[in-house]
Design a binder for these strands. Sequence first.
DNA 1: CGCTTCATGTAAACGGTTACATGATTTA
DNA 2: TAAATCATGTAACCGTTTACATGAAGCG
Lengths: 212, 212
Amino acid sequence: MSLRYGLLGFLSKWEATGYDIKKEFDDIMSIFWHSHLSQIYPELNKLEQEGLISSQLIPQMGKPDKKLYSMTQKGKSAFITWLLSPQEAAKRKDSFLMQTFFMDNIPFEEALLKIKMNKKEHELRLEHMKSILEERWKDIKERKVMNARIISSSAILKQGIEQEIQSIKWCDQTIQLMEECKDLWDLKEDHVSIERFSVIERLLSSYFKDVL
Amino acid sequence: MSLRYGLLGFLSKWEATGYDIKKEFDDIMSIFWHSHLSQIYPELNKLEQEGLISSQLIPQMGKPDKKLYSMTQKGKSAFITWLLSPQEAAKRKDSFLMQTFFMDNIPFEEALLKIKMNKKEHELRLEHMKSILEERWKDIKERKVMNARIISSSAILKQGIEQEIQSIKWCDQTIQLMEECKDLWDLKEDHVSIERFSVIERLLSSYFKDVL
DNA sequence: CGCTTCATGTAAACGGTTACATGATTTA
DNA sequence: TAAATCATGTAACCGTTTACATGAAGCG
């Protein structure tokens, strides 16, 4: 039910086509939502039928005609009602973490490689977000604009960047722990020697030291 | 397509009923996935039809009969194939962050309250995860068990805990920034005085100081 | 006396993804 | 010459949520 409010929210500040909004969903808005054009277009049509947005057809030369949407008063008040409503906690769906949870079922080297690859993906996304931030930063300085929207989008960018940094750090620390516990992957039983047990106990407590 | 592998993964280590697995989905596994019983039961039936798991009916007194599932060889190899396969990046869907992104549309005090409430939710979840960790910690020490599964579930717990800590810290820093930029919410234009602009510029650069 | 736990399901509705369809212009 | 960009959509499918259905035991 939140996609419609993502569309409405975007149109609360700018007039735009479905295609324009999609680009934003692939950019900063991807930090909290994502959607396909095949879902955006029907939803925009529905919003227009309900009178929350209105459109004007703009013919173009050499390009397909476009439908420029803008928000109506009715749309604005529906959007504000939603903005004030409480939302239930975001439920994560992360199949990489699912694989990590069960990685005791695959050979050590394969498990390690998976985490190393995941780290690289997070690094790429971090770089992308940092470049978005710097671009906006430059634009603000040049145009000397300042408003509440800049504060709220900065907050989202910061959340996105911090989550990536945290994930990268987690990958490093987890790789380190795994390398120190490599022998457990070849183990057939659930018990190790008393000496080995206390070594791993100390490794685990150092793994968790900054969170407890 | 990952729910079935969550079920398979759980059954790779323990025999269980759909009801048992649901409890685990509500506990640690909630860090990376969640599901309803009405989805779990049909999926287990499908997995059995496909020969990936098998069940035995266990009659109980005073309680409903239960179906205890266990994994077949075919299930085990299908699961390992999936474990080795690359997964695409997790796409977040977070309607709280969506509301935050558009919070310039609501009064300052309402926006602030939303973030404060979100902080409390993260604190509750953090406490819950910490208690899971301590429980497991105690159990390991008592039973002196040690295996790769303990390492992988510790990694997941750490990821869950760290994300909550990061979110709480983000709430604090964002609340602070907002309070220092309160005046922007009453603004009708996009421009502030040169003095105010450079003050906010410095506030923003300090807001981002630990990520750049 | 009502709520939670145990235990398994079906059916309808909703949300989201993938594939298909069109077609000119621009870029590599 | 092939791919990407601009621009809008439909149809089929799949995954997820909500509502409905049953019913005994135990707890406060």
